[in-house]
């Protein structure tokens, strides 16, 4: 099952179940992600894919099963949760930049206050990552003055400033115009090439084809199938997967 590089998986999800009230969102999920692996999770809306990656940094709490991130098992222990969150960066559909701070402040705030980094070092780091996402000129702008694509790239830089081992992407391009989707995907491809471990919930099948090591298809809270992109797109095992792919590719 664990097709990519060997060794301990960095994320180990075993028998995870989750309910929202009476509604069974995640049903017996088992998933291992190796260091440096790129995973794309797709599926119809309401299939539980966002909930699954939100469980990994405990924005959602699972009721049954075990999630281990880089050797730390998630529990109600606040210290462990913070430890995991510092190693796991997350991108959101709505960017969620802090609107009352400039782009530079958005980037330096967490390293300074959470990682206890000196301010000048944090600024240097911030500019380094702004260069990497190709928007160093926006450092003194406020998020409200940037376009959606620029905001999402700032959000990526903000994550990178915390030097995470894993990055989670929760539909990072769903709220963007087509032109902006490309600039964000370019940054994500660049990130993938640098060897970052990535879990992406996305409908960008082109991205999945070129970048992913493995594609996971979810429906109704279950992992229906997972495979390398070549096999997944050309020879899906289940009719449900086929239906989903035909719908998503037809337009």
């Amino acid at each position: 099952m664990n097709s990519a590089a060997g060794g301990e998986p960095i994320i180990d999800i075993v028998g995870v179940n989750k309910w929202f009230g009476d509604f069974h969102v995640l049903k017996d999920i088992n998933l291992q992600v190796a260091r440096g692996e790129k995973l794309v999770i797709c599926g119809p809306s309401g299939s539980g894919k966002s909930t699954l990656i939100r469980c990994i940094n405990r924005l959602e709490i699972h009721q049954k099963g075990r999630i281990t991130v880089d050797g730390i098992e998630l529990s109600n222990d606040v210290k462990r949760i913070d430890q995991v969150r510092r190693e796991v960066g997350m991108l959101f559909q709505n960017f969620n930049l802090f609107p009352h701070m400039t782009v530079l402040e958005n980037l330096t705030l967490s390293p300074v206050w959470i990682r206890k980094m000196p301010l000048h070092a944090a600024r240097k780091l911030a500019f380094q990552y702004l260069e990497r996402v190709k928007i160093p000129e926006l450092a003194d702008k406020y998020p409200g003055q940037c376009s959606g694509g620029q905001q999402q790239r700032v959000a990526i830089a903000r994550c990178l400033c915390m030097n995470p081992k894993v990055m989670l992407f929760d539909e990072p391009t769903s709220a963007l115009d087509p032109e902006m989707i490309k600039e964000v995907l370019d940054v994500m491809v660049d990130l993938a090439n640098s060897g970052m471990t990535m879990l992406c919930v996305t409908h960008e099948m082109g991205f999945a084809r070129t970048v992913a090591d493995r594609v996971v298809f979810m429906d109704a809270g279950e992992i229906v199938e997972e495979n390398d992109p070549e096999t997944f797109f050309n020879h899906p095992r289940f009719d449900r997967t086929q239906l989903f792919l035909s719908q998503i590719i037809s337009h």
Partner: peptide
Amino acid sequence: IPRGQYEAAEALGWTYWKMMGLIILPQALR
């Protein structure tokens, strides 16, 4: 303050009091 602000801060590893003091309250008070 949108839920996303809390989530973004939590995902970056912010603890409750620091998050409130530096991210949520400055926005709310304004």
